[in-house]
Amino acid sequence: MTNERLHNTMKVRRAEKGITQAQLAEQTGVTRKTINSVENGIFVPSAVLALKIARALETTFDTLFSLPET
């Protein structure tokens, strides 16, 4: 398997909601560093974490995350 990346719009959505990385981390039960790593495409979240992030940002998984075109 190749090194897969998952695109996301977390930073934009977070800004729209006025939520900091630390606040999002607290709401989803992870560290701020984890949120930062997901936002920057360094870490691919588990399905559960991705769904928690989407819920916290009041959006859907498929609106927040996408696979790059091949």
Results as ranks from 00 to 15, higher is better:
Met1Ile: 09
Met1Glu: 07
Met1His: 03
Thr2Tyr: 03
Thr2Arg: 12
Thr2Pro: 12
Asn3Trp: 09
Asn3Lys: 15
Asn3Gln: 15
Glu4Tyr: 12
Glu4Ser: 10
Arg5Val: 11
Arg5Met: 09
Arg5Ile: 15
Leu6Asn: 04
His7Arg: 01
His7Pro: 00
His7Gly: 02
Thr9Pro: 01
Thr9Ala: 12
Thr9Cys: 03
Met10Cys: 15
Lys11Val: 01
Lys11Asn: 05
Lys11Tyr: 03
Lys11Ala: 08
Lys11Asp: 00
Val12Thr: 13
Val12Ala: 15
Arg13Lys: 15
Arg13Tyr: 14
Arg14Ala: 13
Arg14His: 05
Arg14Trp: 04
Ala15Cys: 12
Ala15Leu: 13
Ala15Glu: 13
Glu16Leu: 05
Lys17Met: 15
Gly18Cys: 09
Gly18Phe: 10
Gly18Glu: 11
Ile19Phe: 06
Ile19Glu: 07
Thr20His: 00
Gln21Lys: 11
Gln21Trp: 10
Gln21Tyr: 08
Ala22Tyr: 15
Ala22Val: 13
Ala22Arg: 11
Gln23Phe: 05
Gln23Tyr: 14
Leu24Val: 04
Leu24Thr: 03
Leu24Cys: 04
Ala25Phe: 05
Ala25His: 06
Ala25Leu: 14
Glu26Lys: 14
Glu26Tyr: 11
Gln27Phe: 06
Gln27Thr: 02
Gln27Leu: 11
Thr28Trp: 01
Gly29Met: 07
Val30Ala: 07
Val30Met: 07
Val30Pro: 02
Thr31Asn: 10
Thr31Arg: 02
Thr31Cys: 00
Arg32Gln: 13
Lys33His: 05
Lys33Tyr: 05
Lys33Gln: 11
Lys33Pro: 05
Thr34Ser: 05
Thr34Glu: 04
Thr34Ile: 06
Ile35Gln: 02
Asn36Gln: 12
Ser37Gln: 09
Ser37Trp: 05
Ser37Cys: 06
Val38Tyr: 04
Glu39Gly: 08
Glu39Ser: 08
Glu39Ile: 04
Asn40Asp: 12
Asn40Pro: 14
Gly41Thr: 02
Gly41Asn: 03
Gly41Lys: 02
Gly41Ser: 09
Gly41Phe: 00
Ile42Ser: 06
Phe43His: 13
Phe43Ala: 01
Ser46Val: 15
Ser46Trp: 05
Ala47Gly: 04
Ala47Tyr: 03
Val48Gln: 11
Leu49Met: 13
Leu49Val: 00
Leu51Val: 12
Leu51Ile: 01
Leu51Thr: 07
Lys52Tyr: 08
Ile53Gln: 02
Ile53Met: 07
Ile53Trp: 00
Ala54Cys: 11
Ala54Tyr: 12
Ala54Asn: 13
Arg55Asp: 13
Arg55Met: 01
Ala56Tyr: 05
Leu57Cys: 00
Leu57Pro: 06
Leu57His: 03
Glu58Ala: 10
Glu58Pro: 05
Glu58Thr: 12
Glu58Phe: 11
Thr59Met: 06
Thr59Lys: 06
Thr59Gln: 07
Thr60Ser: 14
Thr60Glu: 08
Thr60Asp: 09
Thr60Pro: 09
Thr60Arg: 12
Phe61Cys: 03
Phe61Pro: 04
Phe61Ile: 09
Asp62Ala: 00
Asp62His: 07
Asp62Val: 00
Thr63Cys: 13
Thr63Met: 10
Leu64Ile: 08
Leu64Gln: 07
Phe65Pro: 00
Ser66Ala: 14
Ser66Gly: 01
Ser66Gln: 01
Ser66Thr: 08
Ser66Asp: 09
Leu67Glu: 04
Pro68Glu: 10
Pro68Gln: 05
Pro68Asp: 13
Pro68Thr: 10
Glu69Lys: 12
Thr70Asp: 07
Thr70Met: 11
